[in-house]
Simulated scan of single mutants.
Amino acid sequence: MSEGTSRYEATHIEVLEGSEAIRKRPGMYVGSTTVRGLHQALFEVLGRSVNEVLAAGGGCVDVTLMLDGGVRVTDNGPGAPVEAAGDCGGVGLESLLTRPHIGAASGDRYPTAWSTWGMGPCVTNALSSRLTAEVRRQHVRWVQEYVRGEAVSPPAVAGPADGSGTSITFWPDADIFETTECSFAVLAKRFEDVAMLNRGLSISLTDERPKGGPRAVRFQFPDGPADVLAALDAESGVQVPPDIIAFEREDAKMAGRVDVALTWCGPSEERIRTFANCVPTRERGARTRTGSGQG
């Protein structure tokens, strides 16, 4: 290297942390800045809610595409711990929204893996123009607001709470995403798949944007694989025989449960749909991530 050539030194390295790093390179965290990345930002929040209610034995998760462009995700889980209340029973609200987390939020099992790297809602927060979090826990309702990943103020008590759960409402940042309009059809299909794979889950999607009035769907499959089998046959127009053989088995080695449903089928063609951690594997094979087993 000649003396006239500038030298690359440690002082030339730019260190980005927290929301600044996520906003600088959003594709590294949600895959792209297209509608696919927009949906992934939603899944980062939704995955936490699904895992919370499943870890508690089952429950409801409701998603609303709001008229003003916001997206609200509400669950009836135990509610995220709030550091301001001295609650140290898990990942606290502020940590959840400002720091990446790998692994389970509640309990030892993490049934769904919606995120590529397990970053969680902190990614959504950083990529939103604003976000409001509400926690209902121990009969108290807490609220906190953020702007582009930065807290406006600490969590504050907003009154008494009936029941428990967490609600996160965010407005995707138009300076980051090419579009801030989520696809009702794409999300509905995704939610149906997750409800099929988790019998303790009820998940709804409400769209307040249509000019003709809101539209909504809810998915719940209390009989698990037997319901899945009926739904798949209904898609192909096949009349499902009344005798469906279904069974389940808990396996300590895989730290999970296997659910199976069988029946006779008229069509001869093969239909295969595969998932790992409740995420479709279109190319088959497995999908792994730190802190969760394959499903």
Rank of each mutant, 00 (worst) to 15 (best):
Q144A: 09
T98Q: 11
S128T: 09
E94F: 05
P155S: 03
P78F: 06
L93V: 02
E150F: 13
A105H: 15
A84D: 11
V140K: 07
G77Q: 12
G149D: 08
T166Q: 09
S106D: 11
L93N: 02
Q144C: 15
V91R: 15
S95N: 06
P154Y: 05
A113G: 13
P155G: 12
L93S: 01
G149F: 15
P121T: 00
G118Q: 02
E83F: 14
R136I: 01
A158C: 04
V140H: 00
Q144L: 08
M119K: 06
P81H: 13
R136M: 09
P78D: 11
R136V: 06
H101E: 11
G79Q: 02
S95W: 08
P81D: 04
P154K: 02
W117Y: 02
G120K: 00
V91N: 14
L93A: 12
V157T: 06
H101S: 02
Q144M: 01
S153I: 03
E145I: 01
T124V: 03
C88D: 01
E134A: 07
A80I: 05
A156G: 09
L127N: 06
S95I: 03
A85P: 04
R99G: 03
E83K: 12
G92Y: 01
G89V: 07
G103F: 01
G77P: 15
D162E: 15
L131D: 05
A105C: 09
E83M: 11
A85T: 08
G149I: 11
G165Y: 01
P78H: 08
E145L: 02
P160V: 11
A113D: 03
A85F: 12
L131V: 15
A85S: 11
V143W: 02
D162F: 05
S106Y: 08
S164H: 14
T124E: 04
A151V: 03
P155R: 00
S164T: 10
A80V: 13
S106I: 07
A161R: 03
G149H: 10
V140F: 04
G90A: 10
M119T: 06
L127K: 06
L127C: 09
A151G: 12
Y110K: 07
V147P: 04
Y146G: 02
L97Y: 05
A104I: 12
V123I: 09
P155A: 08
A104N: 15
S153K: 14
P100G: 12
A133E: 12
V140C: 13
A151N: 08
L93D: 05
V147L: 04
R137Y: 11
Y110N: 13
P100I: 00
Q138H: 11
T116S: 13
D87H: 08
S128G: 12
V157R: 02
R99F: 10
E94V: 13
